[in-house]
Design a protein around this nucleic acid. Structure first.
Length: 501
RNA sequence: GGGCCGUUAGCUCAGUCGGCAGAGCAUCUGCCUUUUAAGCAGAGGGUCGCUGGUUCGAGUCCAGCACGGCUCACCA
């Protein structure tokens, strides 16, 4: 057979050559003695002469990341995704047959090598092979070694290739895993029970968002994918589990952006006999600790800023509106934020879009989001929200239009949302009814009535504080990622047209 | 959904005024037994995202479509 010119045909040709030489092209296993990381840990500190004396033998395996052929010898760099190790293959050390096999190796192939550890003239730790094995063929060439893979679409669609060639991508997901583990450790150490609640729900509640719809065939009923964990976790507080959390996927049928993916990971935790101010302290402690454990410092780079987790600030929503109001436009005083007419005129003055049916609470939240959110780069707790936009929160003792709720902002993003939970079933029912009216006015995101939840509250729920933390966004902040897709392994994309070849 | 930008070799990218489709890496052939962005000599590789249009002639100009990115709106 002649050497084909097409890259793919060349690889298939080499695969056929492997078979022709009597090698199983896809062997079942490989008995390695050390991972590449173990070799590095064990021998990295040992100099050339000592290695020569010790003649340590190893069997290692990994993917070929580069290959330098040099006549009757050659070097390959193996990677296991995290560590790299060089292998030296020399014809008079491995023999004719193994050397013929070695010549069929391509960049990207998975191979094994047995041999002794030594250092080359340039000092690099290397396995001098006495035998090589072929373990799996790379039929689709990898991106080049200098620029790597930068095309964003290919990186997301073929994350496996992204992970092979871009080591920093792996490090983001290692950090993400660490964040999740630290959160579990933190909550477990404080007596929280981790639970799992339904993803498929007949009423998608606990947040103001549009759900995905699905259908159960056997029961022939419509179902929704959950948009929050909240209402089931509070049922468990009623059931006598005073500290409970769930960290899992939720789904919102909304747009995608650098800060939104339709499925994302949320931590929600609930603590009985506490209110929102307890959770302010707890969140601050937890997030600062995680930042330090995951990044090694309480000062963390993000988007050209240094986030300082030693300097948290706390502002009420009204204070934040007044403080961050643009200087060029006459701004409100605190007392102006009560009056519907004034709120409307202030919203107009900053070109914020609102509906005539929006009440004062919605307008206040709108003013906040418009003028303040972008300024909240440093870790900031914004507290005391309008009741109108918080149907599940307990009102302030001195002001029934406001609730005990706070959100945590870092890097200009909302990272957490917490409140003192409304536990009066009669008031909860009234709040749901208000939401139904908003729904009647066309607000698709208004909360649905959940009569079982009212029934649960009627058995008595202790005073409780609860919080939700967006794990994807927290990961963005702690890995200096500007897009949520950089912290989600397989973000949602439109389907791709793939031909069979 | 709106606005802006992008799509050229396996990868990263050039392509001028509309006039023969280019480079580096990768690949192939030859040489090379401690290289590491190995080296030297040579070669092959293209549905220029898709469909139309204008033109003697389109990667280039025009229209539509697809996919993606950023951004606005919505949201966490």
């Amino acid at each position: 057979m002649e050497n084909p010119t097409n890259l793919l045909e060349q690889r298939r040709f080499k695969l056929a050559e492997l078979k022709r030489l009597g090698h199983d092209p896809y062997p079942h296993r490989f008995d390695y003695t050390h991972t590449l990381g173990e070799v590095r840990r064990r021998f990295d500190g040992i100099d050339a002469s000592e290695l020569e004396e010790r003649r340590e033998t190893v069997k290692v395996c990994g993917r070929i990341m580069s290959l330098r052929l040099q006549g009757k010898a050659g070097f390959i760099d193996l990677s296991d995704g995290e560590h790299r190790l060089q292998v030296y293959v020399r014809r008079d050390f491995v023999g004719q047959e193994n050397f013929a096999l070695f010549k069929l190796f391509d960049i990207g192939d998975i191979v094994g090598a047995a041999g002794t550890i030594f250092r080359t003239r340039t000092g690099e730790l290397t396995v001098s092979a006495t035998a090589v094995s072929h373990l799996a063929k790379n039929l689709l060439p990898l991106p080049e070694k200098w620029h790597g893979l930068t095309d964003v679409e290919t990186r997301f669609r073929q994350r496996y290739v992204d992970l092979i060639v871009n080591p920093e991508v792996r490090s983001v997901f290692v950090k993400r895993s660490r964040i999740i583990r630290e959160i579990r450790d933190f909550l477990d150490a404080r007596g929280y029970l981790e639970v799992e609640t339904p993803v498929l729900q007949t009423i998608a509640g606990g947040a103001l968002a549009r759900p995905f719809r699905t259908h159960h065939n056997a029961l022939d009923i419509p179902l929704y994918m959950r948009i929050a964990l909240e209402l089931y976790l509070k049922r468990l507080i009623v059931g006598g589990i005073p500290r409970v959390y769930e960290m899992s996927r939720i789904f919102r049928n909304e747009g995608v952006s650098t800060q939104h993916n339709p499925e994302f990971t949320m931590l929600e935790f609930y603590q009985a006999y506490s209110d929102y101010s307890d959770l302010m302290d707890l969140s601050q402690e937890m997030i600062t600790l995680i930042a330090e454990k995951v990044t090694g410092s309480r000062q963390v780079p993000y988007g050209g800023h240094i986030l300082d987790f030693d300097k948290w600030q706390r502002l009420s929503m009204k204070e934040a509106i007044c403080r961050f109001w643009p200087e060029s436009i006459p701004g409100p005083a605190m007392e102006d934020l009560q009056s519907l007419d004034r709120l409307r005129s202030f919203a107009g003055s900053i070109n914020a879009h609102f509906e005539p049916t929006d009440g004062p609470g919605k307008l206040m939240a709108l003013l906040f989001e418009t003028v303040a959110e972008d300024h909240l780069i440093q870790p900031t707790i914004i507290y005391d929200y309008p009741a109108e936009v918080s149907p599940l929160s307990k009102t302030k003792p001195d002001d029934p239009t406001m609730v005990e709720r706070f959100e945590l902002y870092i890097g200009g993003m909302e990272v957490a949302n917490a409140y003192s939970e409304l536990n009066d079933p009669a008031e909860q029912k009234a709040r749901f009814e208000e939401q139904l009216q908003a729904r009647g006015r066309g607000d698709e995101e208004a909360h649905d009535m959940d009569l079982d939840y009212i029934r649960a509250l009627s058995y008595g729920m202790p005073p409780t504080a609860g919080e939700g933390i967006g794990i994807d966004r927290l990961t963005m902040v702690l890995t200096d990622s500007q897009s949520i897709r950089d912290v989600i392994l397989f973000p949602l994309l439109r389907p791709e047209q793939l031909s069979g070849e």
